[in-house]
């Protein structure tokens, strides 16, 4: 192996970009669903949509190993403490997608037993409307999260807006 060959294989970048590049293509979602929207999340992992293309196929059953929480479905007030507990158990950095009308705003359930949007209990990065949203919408949300990660700094996580 000559020195010439080696030269062509060296890319100069900042550590920040390298870390973000790594994080961006290894968002491990948490296996977690609350209602019918979770089925769309399953489809997102199947062959026709295949979120493995974006490095997110490794769904983790343990919150300790997951980076992305997809709140897919209706969040009842009884379930809210458990969801908050799971969110707190996830290691930083972590991201949240509110998937579906119920997770975004409570949806059709303007009732006494449903939390009117998961952002009342945990911070949300991307909202996906729809009842239920198509799996393509999930992929779009995943790409939005990737765009967000690109702009983040390693030392501190601050509020980032994406167009």
């Amino acid at each position: 192996m000559g020195v010439e060959e080696l030269e062509r294989n060296i890319i100069v970048t900042s550590l920040e970009r390298l870390v973000n590049w790594g994080r961006k293509y290894s968002i491990w979602p948490l296996t977690f669903g609350l209602a019918c929207c979770a089925l769309e999340f399953m489809v997102a992992g199947s062959a026709s949509v295949d979120m493995a293309r974006f490095g997110s196929e490794v769904a983790r059953p343990s919150p300790r190993q997951a980076d992305l929480m997809i709140v897919a479905g209706t969040l009842t007030k009884k379930m809210a403490p458990m969801v908050k507990r799971i969110y707190e158990q996830m290691a930083e950095p972590k991201w949240v997608i509110a998937f579906g009308a119920c997770a975004c705003t409570g949806g059709i359930f303007r009732t006494y037993n449903v939390v009117q949007g998961v952002d009342q209990i945990i911070p949300v990065d991307v909202y996906v409307p729809g009842c239920p949203p198509r799996p393509e919408s999930f992929i779009a949300a995943l790409i939005k999260i990737q765009e967000k990660i690109e702009k983040e700094t390693v030392r501190e996580r601050k509020l980032i807006s994406i167009p």
Binding site: K77, K78, A80, P81, K84, R85, R110, T111, Y112, N113, V115, Q116, Q120, I121
Partner: peptide, 30 residues
């Protein structure tokens, strides 16, 4: 089915569907 601190009995006919204090932000307690 409901949380222990819930106010009212939801299947009574005079219970509002939205419950009481609907517009107040929901506070989750572990």
């Amino acid at each position: 089915l409901l949380t222990d601190d819930f106010v009212g009995y939801p299947l009574r006919k005079d219970f509002p569907t939205e419950g009481y204090d609907f517009d107040r932000p929901f506070e989750v307690r572990l």
